[in-house]
Design a protein around this nucleic acid. Structure first.
Lengths: 161, 161
DNA sequence: AGTGAAACTGAGTGCGG
DNA sequence: CCGCACTCAGTTTCACT
C-alpha cells in the first residue's frame, strides 16, 4: 500500500504531471505532447487510477471565497497513550479539521483547521478541547501564504528513484 | 482579493461542492441534481472560474506512489526581522517545499516539506539551513494520517455566512 | 439568468498489428 | 502495449424567452 508502483515509467510520470496541472486536459492533447495516441493515454490513466497513483480529480477552490478566512495548525497533546484509532474518531467529529496526522516531537497529533473567522476558530478549539483524552492544545495561526495555493496533499512532481 | 464573492448563491455552492468531490462530473449530471440545464451550469462554472472561486482542476495523487515517502513540517526562525518577500524567494529555491506560510508564535514561518526518504529530507533541511538569514529550524515528522487525503488547500464545504 | 437545439470535440470500445 | 476507426456522450455556442 505504500510501495512504489511497479512499471511506472517516464510516460506515466508526464501524464500524471499534466493531469495535476490541469485535470481537464484531454487525452488527445496529452498524447500529442508526449507522442502517444489518445487511446493509449486513456488506458494509462485508467491503470494509474486502478493502481491508486491517481486517487481522484478535484476542483481547487480559494477557501476565502467560500467564507473560510481563518486557518491554523493545532498541536494536540493526549492523556497517556493516544491510540491513533481513537484519535481518528475524534477528528472526524469536527468538520473544520481538514487534515490530521500523528507526528514526532512533543505533540501526539497535528491538526489543520479552517474556520470562518477567529470567533469560529475559538469555538472549534473549545469543542476539540472537551474531547475525552485531549490534555492540551497549542495553536499556530496562519498569517499569509508564501507560495501560491499548492496542492498540499501531493508533490507536484514525481521523485526520481 | 480576500472578500466573499458577491452573488454566490446556493446553486453555486452546490456546483462547487460537486466539482470538489469529482472534477469530472458532467454539467448535465450536476444540472440534473440541482434542477438546472447543462448550459446554465456551464455558465456558472465559467463565472466561478473568472471570479476566482474555482482556481483550477487537478488530479489528486498519492505521493508515496510517486516516490515521496517522507513528509514533515519545519518551523523556521529568522535573524532579526524576516521580510515575507525575501522568505518567499528562499522558499521557491527548494522544490521539496510544498507549502509555506508565515505564522503566529515563536517561529517566523512554517514549511511543509516532502522528500523521498529520511536521507533526502536531511539533505533538504541542510540546504534550507544554509540560506542567508535562517537562524534555526525545528522539524516535526509526519508519522501517519488520521484522515483520508483531504484537499488540504481547501475546505470541503462552503461556510455559512 | 434560464432553456433547447445544433455543431463540434473528446471519451469509450472493438479490432487489428 | 500501441494505433485506428467508429459510436456516443458531453461541451460549447447560438437564438430565443
Amino acid at each position: 500500500m505504500n510501495s512504489r508502483t511497479p512499471s511506472f515509467d517516464d510516460l506515466d510520470r508526464k501524464i500524471t504531471t499534466a493531469l495535476m496541472a490541469n485535470a481537464r486536459t484531454s487525452f488527445a492533447e496529452i498524447g500529442a505532447a508526449i507522442g502517444l495516441s489518445a487511446t493509449a493515454v486513456k488506458r494509462r490513466v485508467d491503470r494509474l487510477r486502478e493502481t491508486g497513483v491517481i486517487t481522484g480529480f478535484t476542483a481547487t477552490v480559494r477557501p476565502s471565497a467560500l467564507g473560510w478566512r481563518t486557518e491554523a495548525y493545532v498541536e494536540v497533546y493526549c492523556e497517556g497513550a493516544a491510540p491513533p484509532r481513537r484519535l481518528a474518531e475524534v477528528v472526524r467529529n469536527h468538520p473544520e479539521i481538514t487534515a490530521a496526522m500523528t507526528v514526532t516531537g512533543g505533540a501526539d497529533a497535528l491538526l489543520h483547521v479552517r474556520a470562518r473567522d477567529v470567533e469560529h476558530f475559538e469555538e472549534v478549539l473549545e469543542r476539540i478541547r472537551t474531547e475525552p483524552f485531549i490534555r492540551k492544545t497549542i495553536s499556530v495561526m496562519v498569517l499569509s501564504h508564501l507560495l501560491p495555493d499548492s496542492p498540499e496533499a501531493g508533490a507536484t512532481q514525481a521523485a526520481p528513484e
